Computed example of a mutant assay.
Amino acid sequence: MDDDEHLLWQRVLAGDDDAFAAVFDLHASRVHRQARRLVEARADAEDVTAMVFFEAWRRRRSVRIVNGSVIGWLLVTTTNVARNRERSRIRYEGLLRKVRVETVPDHADEVLDSFMRPAVRGRVREAFDGLSTRDQEILALCVLEELAPADVARLLHVPAGTVRMRLSRAKSRLRAALGEDHGRSTLAGLGGTS
């Protein structure tokens, strides 16, 4: 077996991908077991195994063959890769602990609450519920979800002009249901009055 592996590695040195695949098949399970002993997660062990064989290919001219096999080099490299990975993880976690994340409060909810106090919210809900299903759909898609009329047209399988016309009528009906002055300010806050 040792002579066969030595010959196989000679083919690897010549750039033979199939020979390298044969070396991988021969030693991948042992490398993975070694990696599994050194790292916590199975996924990390798989990453370490991949990195070891990448290094073996990249540094194939400097891989040491001991007793006709590269397994010793692969196992030592596995240990080094796993330790480097662990050191990087510890360094990264240390940096994260040092970083003070300053949270900036999101004032959107406060603005929305002050804009649409419960009584106003109830009037808007009542006016919206009084609209036809088609008007509700157009307002929800174009105003609340902020989709472009052309995109809504494609979703509803109607011309874009039809969506714009329905949107204008739906906004007018909502304004009328809310009362003209209140309806304008409400629709302005929801995305315009046209």
Score class of each variant (00 low, 15 high):
residue 154 R to D: 09
residue 193 T to A: 03
residue 100 R to N: 04
residue 58 R to L: 08
residue 177 A to E: 08
residue 52 V to L: 02
residue 149 P to N: 03
residue 113 D to T: 09
residue 27 H to M: 02
residue 154 R to N: 04
residue 128 F to G: 02
residue 72 G to P: 09
residue 153 A to Y: 05
residue 113 D to K: 07
residue 183 G to M: 10
residue 132 S to I: 06
residue 126 E to S: 14
residue 162 T to L: 00
residue 83 R to F: 03
residue 92 Y to P: 00
residue 102 E to K: 02
residue 95 L to F: 02
residue 77 T to F: 05
residue 8 L to W: 11
residue 77 T to N: 07
residue 81 V to S: 05
residue 138 I to K: 12
residue 178 L to N: 06
residue 66 V to D: 08
residue 167 L to W: 00
residue 38 L to V: 12
residue 107 H to N: 02
residue 18 D to L: 06
residue 99 V to L: 10
residue 148 A to L: 14
residue 156 L to R: 07
residue 93 E to K: 04
residue 12 V to Y: 04
residue 78 T to F: 02
residue 10 Q to A: 06
residue 146 E to G: 11
residue 132 S to L: 09
residue 151 D to Q: 11
residue 55 E to A: 12
residue 164 R to C: 00
residue 8 L to N: 12
residue 9 W to M: 06
residue 180 E to S: 09
residue 37 R to A: 14
residue 168 S to V: 01
residue 2 D to G: 13
residue 36 R to V: 11
residue 84 N to F: 03
residue 186 T to F: 13
residue 190 L to Y: 03
residue 63 V to P: 08
residue 11 R to C: 08
residue 174 L to E: 09
residue 33 R to D: 15
residue 32 H to K: 10
residue 147 L to G: 04
residue 185 S to K: 11
residue 95 L to K: 05
residue 39 V to K: 12
residue 97 R to A: 06
residue 9 W to H: 07
residue 93 E to I: 00
residue 192 G to F: 04
residue 80 N to S: 15
